[in-house]
Write a protein that binds this DNA or RNA. Structure first.
Lengths: 145, 145
DNA sequence: TATTGTTATACTCTATAACTATA
DNA sequence: TATAGTTATAGAGTATAACAATA
């Protein structure tokens, strides 16, 4: 019989694990690597097509200004391009460049890929299953903070 | 039959959920609240008793210098105290103060408590169980990054 | 020499505030 | 007025480098 866990125990366990994740993932990247927010933006542009700063900010639940910072960094490295919106002069339309697509393909240049590599090397299928189940729960937790 | 999840799917799901957690938890705290690293230090001092900067840094897997920053902030708010080590003049011994203990007790003044509150309000026992199973896996993932 | 700790500096990712330009 | 975006500034949490004091 599986015992119902105490809230405090779950909270403590998650804080420990997620806290460590935060610290690890946040560590400085080597030259040219993609940070988590950068990879997130590039993936959205790859799969969702060209869009605006405001839409990208909404998708990642950060402010427009913060998204602007990330986009400027990506633009200066030639990974995204800014074009004027055809009908609305206020907007800019962002799209991923060929260089950006190549950056995403590289298996070692992003935290995303490092996560994937770590998973494939150190976890069993049933553990992957358990992580898959937990992911949406963690997202819901984040949403409610 | 539960399907074995694709590595890429697990990686993407975890990035989304943990990434959002990172952004949420990192948001500025209200005056006097405890940040995640601050609460972590206070809890260690509460349960593990007085110890040194180096030990605390090891426990949270950050550099001594970074831990020093956190401790200085806590000290200036009167939540921890620094005392000379009895036999080794190089070391300082940190301990939690009564004010620090009171800060930990307050149910609303830390990210930790916010996590606990969110869990108790929005998750079923079986979901808590699933999170409990995932926590050590996430920690192992973080360790291997 | 090795260990403990501090100070100085910088980086990433985020925020708020104030602004310009367009609708 | 409202919306889209930029620029300026600040803050949290980390890092590395260089140093002083003690073992």
């Amino acid at each position: 019989m599986t015992k119902i866990p105490e809230i405090a125990d779950v909270a403590a366990a998650l804080q420990l694990s997620i806290g460590l994740c935060i610290r690890r993932i946040r560590q400085p990247l080597a030259e040219g690597e993609l940070s988590l927010p950068e990879a997130s933006v590039l993936k959205r542009l790859e799969f969702g097509g060209p869009t605006t700063v405001t839409e990208l900010a909404k998708a990642d639940q950060i402010t427009v200004q913060s998204m602007g910072t990330t986009l400027s960094a990506l633009e200066s490295r030639g990974l995204v391009e800014r074009h004027p919106h055809p009908s609305d002069g206020r907007r800019s339309v962002l799209s991923i460049t060929k260089t950006g697509l190549r950056a995403l393909e590289n298996k070692h240049n992003s935290r995303s890929q490092q996560v994937a590599n770590a998973l494939s090397e150190g976890f069993s299928p049933s553990e992957l299953q358990q992580l898959m189940v937990a992911a949406p729960l963690i997202e819901r937790l984040a949403q409610s903070l």
